[in-house]
Design a protein around this nucleic acid. Structure first.
Lengths: 291, 291
DNA sequence: AACCATGTGAAACATGTGTTTCGAAGAAAT
DNA sequence: ATTTCTTCGAAACACATGTTTCACATGGTT
């Protein structure tokens, strides 16, 4: 029985009693354990935005003699836990009892999610993404529609977009019917529609309505031939392959986030300025917890 | 420039052409690859019973600029940052002219997202996930709270959970204040709280209230020491590292989806049956588009 | 023999490392 | 207001690190 329990636990349990700066260091260590094993103390301190002395002090605060002891602990941990996917998969398959079936499922989910995202961000994807950006930048109003499981992705875009542009409209059917929210949509607007099979009727109808009003559509969907993608200005394909019964909208969410990031990057300092203003406003409303 | 294939191969193939002392160093490196990642060059030289200059010479003999490059390579291997990562990153960095900046950004976003998901599904994560499932299965009511950028993840879980269980409550502050929705929460319930830095006050307050009512909490957050995770029954850490200005809740969404998948898997055929019923109901309401 | 070529390790070097010290700044208590 | 007490970061420190330099040795070739 080791005298020292796991240093990570110690760090967590003592966290509340540490001084603010030490908390910053402790938090960085908890969030980036590999940095402890692989990088120098000073480098870690820099990354955590803390002077080196704080880290030394943290060591004695949690009862560790020297940084070296601490680092050795993390190095040992790194050597014991091979992070390799292949190795993990092999191990879980080797002992296929009941408790490991869950682990195997999670492993499989993880791989699928990564595959989906990788596929979404293929090189062919870039020009479509840029086209979408241009369309959004030129639009008078930006409507976003996504129902059911696709709603999170639509919401995410609308939420982030609102922070630096005020011409976004999330069409979620909450303020009355879909028709109300889409009123006045036209050729100078853009509709971003998110959805995968099984396609939700409301979403498809919104797309059809927009098309009838000559409003171009950006489709974030699971296939180039999805009903959402018919006659779309651009189609961003985000696979929803899932290990479970449900579709996975992880890739779609990721694409939406990437779209926002790209818009901000193209918007330059002006966009950043607006974001700063929005953040300040949120701070005024006491939305966030102070550190 | 030719991308370096695995340095280990290079070391083996050139072994015969090296001078005796360099062979001694090379042999030690081949036998103790982890020493390269974790120990210093001088320490490795001592262990190999060779002066430091020999190791430096070995570096240039195998065409590596500096010991640091060599060590980084071995560190990446230890972390199992698949070689394809580094390779893809270098390729995109290579063509870093102005026209490709967007492509580079997207590439970088993709890599970060994958990192986040990988980190979230680490092996240590499995037991926490199982604990969370058990807590949910035993709970009378399942409250889900997540504001701002975390809302998509919370919504996603609530939406999917509703398809096979009817004791889920999404606390979104829409039907009145947070307090109303949390009314009656107690020790037999469970609260799933999603949030990352900067922490939204309402979410933290919901967690504190739940705790004050002795209701256990499952925290899906960005750190073990997040205010949301204080005294939590289980903490599922989902990093939100992002290339853009915004946090990325992709990993959190993925974790929530995995939680649902696991619950269904553990629920067995009964859960599937309920899902089928729910789907049928949706079909009755003409929600989906028929093929 | 003299000569080059090559292999080698000790020492020098600038920089980086982990730790300690010290004084300032602020809060808490008297 | 004065005194503790804590927290903190800059600077100093002694040592380690990766690299380069240089002198010396060895062995082979003229």
């Amino acid at each position: 029985m080791g005298v020292q329990t796991d240093l990570r636990e110690k760090l967590i349990s003592d966290y509340a009693k540490l001084s603010p700066q030490m908390q910053k260091a402790a938090r960085y260590i908890l969030d980036h354990p590999n940095d402890v094993a692989l990088r120098s103390m000073r480098a870690l301190a820099r990354a955590a935005n803390v002077p080196p002395s704080t880290v030394t002090r943290l060591m004695s605060a949690i009862g560790v003699e020297t940084w070296r002891d601490f680092r050795d602990h993390y190095q040992d941990r790194l050597l014991d836990n091979p992070a390799s996917y292949a190795q993990r998969a092999r191990e879980t398959q080797r002992t296929d009892n009941d408790s490991n079936r869950d682990a195997h499922l999670l492993e499989s989910i993880c791989r699928t999610e990564i595959d989906n995202i990788s596929a979404a961000f293929s090189p062919d994807f870039v020009p479509h993404m840029i086209t979408a950006c241009e369309a959004i930048e030129d639009a008078r109003q930006v409507f976003i529609v996504g129902s059911g499981a696709a709603y999170p992705a639509a919401f995410q875009f609308a939420y982030a977009y609102r922070l630096f542009c005020d011409n976004g409209v999330l069409v979620d059917g909450r303020s009355g019917a879909f028709g109300d929210e889409l009123r006045g949509i036209g050729r100078r607007d853009i509709l971003i529609a998110v959805g995968a099979k099984p396609y939700i009727r409301d979403t498809v109808r919104a797309v059809e309505y927009a098309r009838s009003q000559h409003c171009p559509v950006i489709a974030v969907t699971d296939s180039d031939v999805s009903p959402i993608a018919v006659d779309a200005r651009t189609t961003l394909v985000a696979r929803d392959t899932s290990q479970s019964f449900f579709q996975s909208f992880t890739a779609a969410l990721s694409v939406m986030q990437a779209l926002v990031a790209l818009l901000v990057a193209r918007g330059g300092p002006k966009a950043l300025q607006r974001i700063a203003a929005a953040e300040e406003q949120l701070a005024v409303f006491d939305t966030y917890l102070e550190d």
